[in-house]
Design a protein around this nucleic acid. Structure first.
Lengths: 356, 356
DNA sequence: TGAAATAATGACAGCGCTGTCATTGGTTGT
DNA sequence: ACAACCAATGACAGCGCTGTCATTATTTCA
């Protein structure tokens, strides 16, 4: 009940103003203003009537009008030191922020926890309350069809970062994920590995499939057969990586190298290997994806794949902005390139292994 | 030159409007509007004249007026999945965001890289361009006196998260950092350790001194002498932790336990120890601070100190907002409590050690 | 009971811009 | 050289709210 979206009729019609509330409550707009600003000198009965009208119309004060006429801005700034190392979302944030600054736009944030039963309500509230022109949807949010439908209905353009699915008229960025996965797998093969484990990511992310395909292609290119017991499901979390690694290392003939679909799962793999007293890369080589801070801070540091996330986020956001300004924009033609960062978690497979 | 702040006179007077620009350029306001919105049908010479006037007055369009009169909002939303594990800044962001949502305010971000020669210009531009009511300054930004001076001049209230210095009328949050440091050091002592190394943090952070004092107090309480060679400077970075650990482990009689002032430096310490083939916690116990993701993802997982950062950020932001709304607010009376999270990077000091 | 004080409400201007439409100036073609 | 056109510019309303001040109810106290 409380979470339901406003009546459909209003999503097309203009939002109610203070006049509508005043009319419905039978008072002047100034009295409505007093009520919504919690000023004194309003009779309790009047206040109540106004509040009912506000409720009935689902009225929200127009922030711009408030700012323009009043003395307050209703804005808080958060100034912070940009840590020199970033998580994935920090990078996206930075890229989007840059593009917004360059384009004269303001960036507003809606952090969500998934799974979320009220997802659509939350997004709806955010979009209408904050009066947005456009929305950026990093993976996996760009693949929630309910969100896409909502934004389409409200006629709000959106840009997606590494989505899984296509959408017509697509404002989205991709990177050469599959190629990078191919490269990193091939790198392991060149080091002499033949038994290569793979830990998949959360299937909701497009990257999961791309990375898996790169792995398969590299095996094929080297004439190595694909063994299903070497492929395990993961969810991009440390724990899921640990669990998958446990299964792989429990095999009678365990892999000598493991490709984890992100750094957290690679860290989980190393964690699991360490618990078993395995040496890395002596007994097991491990690679990850994303080059997040953890990759360079664990021992041994991870060989991983770096994506230009900041640049990708910046590019797609500025494209979105150009489109909002009325420019006719072409979709990004080229995926961004990724590259392998070689560190100490990978090594040459000892010759003795060939006997096995 | 280009970076200099607008003429002093204007910081008190009202900001120039489109009228001022029009008058100076000798055109109508509509023409100014055309120029700043890059519309067509403006003679090059006119455009130039207007641009000069804009420059001369340092004119910035009033965002609220634009929004109110036009059809655009100049706002982009970024909707993202809140990763289940956060960096320090992510936590601050989440707390501040919560408080803003609850208070009907909007949160705007200014990420900064330090050191920054244009610091004040950047902050000035942010504050005036975004028309903020208040500012949140997480450590170490709350200790930059230039920023404080600027905000005071502009009469913009600010709240600080774990600042080092006091400011009258203080809107700031602290946590029981010293106590936590005492606790974690005492914990190591109880495990039998007597030779305890300490790696300090960046001196610009208040936490650095608090944590160091807790360490000293715990040594005193146990009757253990403070040896200066056991105390090393660090900068809160992984690298600095590694360097400091190297120095400590190079000692003729190295410590059997190391207290690093944050997790990154603790990770650096473990990294260094691993490079030397030391076993943890067998040969060396290590503790960190902050309980960042890395603490639980490295092997062995780190014993560390967790601060309620989200709650702290939320509390101080909502206090700031209440103050902006005109309430008479009291400073937060109690620092927030921290607690030790015990993991596998610490262990009982073997008895043989007593011989040494 | 009536005057003075106070509480509750309303009328209205104006915040700084953009959208619409009217007007002016300049160019082209014949 | 004049009409017919298009480019360049301006006049003005109005976006939705808050601040100011005037007005009208209600209470208080002599």
């Amino acid at each position: 009940m409380k979470n339901s979206v406003p009546p459909k009729a209003q999503s097309k019609l203009k939002a109610p103003t203070i006049f509508d509330v005043a009319k419905l409550a039978g008072v002047s707009i100034k009295t409505v203003s007093r009520v919504i600003n919690l000023e004194s000198n309003v009779r309790a009965s009047t206040r109540e009537r106004v509040e009912e009208a506000v409720e009935a119309l689902d009225y929200r004060p127009n922030a711009a009008a408030r700012v323009l006429s009043g003395k307050r801005f209703y804005v808080i700034g958060l100034i912070y030191e940009n840590p020199n190392e970033f998580s994935y979302m920090q990078k996206v944030l930075n890229g989007a922020l840059k593009a917004c600054e360059a384009g004269g736009y303001t960036l507003l944030l809606l952090p969500l926890t998934l799974p979320n039963p009220d997802l659509i309500d939350d997004v709806q509230r955010f979009v209408s309350q904050s009066r947005l022109d456009g929305v950026v949807l990093p993976a996996p949010l760009g693949d929630f069809s309910e969100i896409q439908r909502l934004l389409n209905e409200l006629n709000i353009p959106y840009a997606r970062i590494t989505p899984k699915t296509e959408a017509g008229d697509d404002l989205s960025v991709q990177c050469h994920d599959e190629q990078a996965s191919f490269d990193v797998t091939q790198f392991l093969i060149e080091q002499g590995h033949r038994r290569l484990g793979f830990i998949k990511g959360d299937p909701i992310h497009g990257a999961t499939e791309h990375r898996y395909r790169g792995y398969i292609r590299a095996l094929q290119a080297a004439g190595i057969g694909l063994h299903s017991e070497f492929v395990r499901d993961g969810m991009f979390s440390f724990e899921s990586g640990k669990t998958a690694a446990r299964a792989l290392l429990d095999l009678r003939e365990p892999p000598t190298a493991i490709v984890a679909s992100n750094d957290d799962m690679a860290a989980g793999t190393i964690f699991e290997a360490r618990e078993r007293g395995l040496s890395i890369p002596g007994d097991l080589s491990v690679v990850g994806f994303d080059d997040t801070p953890i990759a360079s801070h664990i021992w041994p540091p991870l060989t991983t794949v770096r994506q230009p996330i900041v640049e990708m986020a910046e590019a797609i956001t500025s494209l979105l902005i150009r489109r909002l300004k009325g420019e006719q924009v072409e979709p990004l033609d080229q995926p961004f390139a990724c590259h392998v960062v070689t560190r100490a978690s990978t090594g040459i497979r000892a010759a003795e292994d060939d006997l096995a």
